[in-house]
Nucleic acid binder design. Structure first.
Lengths: 161, 161
DNA sequence: ACAGCCATGTAACTTGTTACATGATTTT
DNA sequence: AAAATCATGTAACAAGTTACATGGCTGT
């Protein structure tokens, strides 16, 4: 979603080097998002360029650590606190239906069928994830996953109309 | 969302020139999405490059028209019929909550308050749009807008937990 | 004459993304 | 010794996006 902000998030508590960020990222998202390691490094460079992150003790050239700057903390704060747009066209499926209507694509039913399938697949995925979570350690994550499942159920209900 | 596919959609029924696409696009989305005209032209060039669109009678250099190719129709078809991912991390607000938890950002309540505000704003926007729609001409759009409103209501309900 | 719309385009930049190269260290 | 993991990076491209330049045509 926003690799930049993920990195700022992980650097918030302590400095890390690229590979460390990669590992921590995978843990944070419980391996639900496959991120190419290379992207960590390209994004770190860009964050340094923008003054949101700065390199630490780059002496010999090994395990270059990075730390977040004050500006980086502010950027992260603003991002977190900023709400997410939820207008009609921000939902790609609605947008597709709009386009389908425009060209008189008479296969809305098939679109809906496939979308339902995807939602079911995503629900299974979420349920599988939930069973893997530790009720103590991942308490907040469990709430999120359950919220996501409720969301998917609402989605499904709407498609059944 | 996908400017490329919007353009393919508009070229599906007949060839058009850039400005025509811009006007039709604004109509199609009922002015809910502000698209810079320049982007139409850059995207058209890229579509031509990829063989999804081809220029028509570019004689004197005025009103260059473009038409969709067979490959373009197929691309559009595949895009329309393809389902949209709905996993946990694809929702930016969930992702923000995850990051907030990671850094022990103790302002989840404020995040939720602001997100609710945004949803209410988007709901008002949708309701305003609905009143502007023609019950005959825009029948399908009305369904979509009402669906979006239901969606927003479900969103709101979840945030109230 | 001037405003406003019709119409086209480009240069520049952003983020996301990947395939690939390279080598060190650790485990089997 | 081979395989796996640790670790860093680069070149290249896609798509989104915008500010800006340019000129014709139309109505007042």
């Amino acid at each position: 979603m926003s690799v930049r902000h993920s990195i700022l998030t992980l650097l918030y508590s302590r400095p890390r080097h690229g590979y460390d960020i990669k590992i921590s990222f995978d843990e944070m998202v419980h391996h639900q998002w496959n991120l190419n390691v290379g992207q960590i490094y390209t994004t770190l460079d860009r964050l340094v360029r923008d003054g949101l992150v700065e390199p630490l003790n780059a002496e010999h050239g090994e395990k270059k650590e990075y730390q977040i700057t004050q500006q980086g903390r502010e950027e992260l704060y603003q991002w977190l606190i900023g709400p997410v747009e939820r207008s009609l066209l921000k939902d790609e499926f609605y947008f597709k239906l709009l386009c389908a209507k425009q060209i008189q694509f008479h296969q809305e039913e098939e679109m809906i069928r496939r979308q339902k399938e995807m939602i079911l697949r995503n629900m299974l995925q979420m349920r599988a994830l939930r069973t893997q979570l530790d009720p103590v350690e991942d308490h907040a994550m469990i709430l999120l996953v359950e919220g996501a499942i409720l969301h998917l159920e609402a989605d499904l209900k709407w498609l059944e109309l």
